[in-house]
């Protein structure tokens, strides 16, 4: 599903964000990406979305070589990915339902399909009763659930979550991770970057640890901290 082969990424400023990263993530996996700030987690996720291109090596996502992907083909790649942001990125002047529908409308989905799919996504994350509310009336946890609904409404093959619990209290954070795990059970590959040790340790899923742009640990049922 996702394959990094000897990937290096150096920004024009000279900062080397990733070097010699080789890793394979198979379809249906649930993976935590951990590591200190500046270790390269965000760059790792940006490469998968083709927001950045690798300086060396190859990044293959669902069969597409990101480095060689023409700009015109990038939207097609991104439609197979669902993205959850730490800061939610909901449009404040639109209702919950409109925010979720936004991802379908801008990708040219048949308008007839939009209503039922938005309903399904909101039910999946438990936000259907708040469909007509504006984001400002929701708690942080609820806003993140709407963000998750927007990520899955396009039925992506992969869900990428960049610090999805960073702005949430522990209870809301646990709800979000449980939802991600439930989405993963349906066969969607889930990749979560996080600084939250509790969630990683409770779920015990595959853990990839980055440090200074290199993979220093890759465990099938790992903990947040490496066991010595």
């Amino acid at each position: 599903m996702i394959h990094f082969d000897g990937v290096g990424k150096r920004y024009p400023t000279g900062v080397a964000a990733l070097s010699q990263v080789t890793v394979r993530i198979d379809p249906g996996e649930f993976v935590f990406l951990v590591g200190p700030t500046g270790s390269g987690k965000s760059t790792f996720l940006k490469l998968i979305q083709a927001i950045e291109r690798p300086t060396t090596g190859r990044v293959v996502v669902d069969g597409d070589d990101v480095g060689a992907l023409p700009a015109a083909a990038v939207p097609r790649l991104r439609r197979r990915l669902g993205v959850v942001f730490q800061e939610f990125k909901l449009l404040p002047d639109r209702t919950v339902a409109d925010n979720v529908a936004f991802a379908l409308r801008v990708t040219g989905t048949d308008p007839v399909e939009i209503g039922p799919r938005v309903q399904w996504a909101l039910e999946t994350v438990g936000m259907a009763p708040r469909a007509d509310d504006l984001p400002a009336r929701l708690s942080g946890g609820e806003q993140q659930r709407v963000c998750l609904a927007r990520a899955i409404v396009t039925r992506p093959r992969v869900v990428l979550a960049d610090e999805p619990t960073g702005n949430l209290d522990p209870e809301a954070a646990w709800e979000i991770v449980q939802l991600l795990a439930r989405i993963n059970l349906r066969g969607t590959t889930v990749l979560v970057s996080t600084h939250n040790p509790t969630l990683v340790d409770i779920l015990r899923r595959r853990v990839i640890e980055l440090c200074a742009g290199r993979i220093v640990r890759d465990e099938a049922r790992g903990l947040y901290q490496a066991t010595r």
Binding site: R78, R79, T107
Partner: peptide
């Protein structure tokens, strides 16, 4: 700009944006 950013990230074509 946030709307434009989200459009691009969810896979809207440049023409659609």
């Amino acid at each position: 700009r946030q709307e434009i950013e989200i459009m691009a990230l969810v896979g809207a074509s440049p023409g659609f944006v």
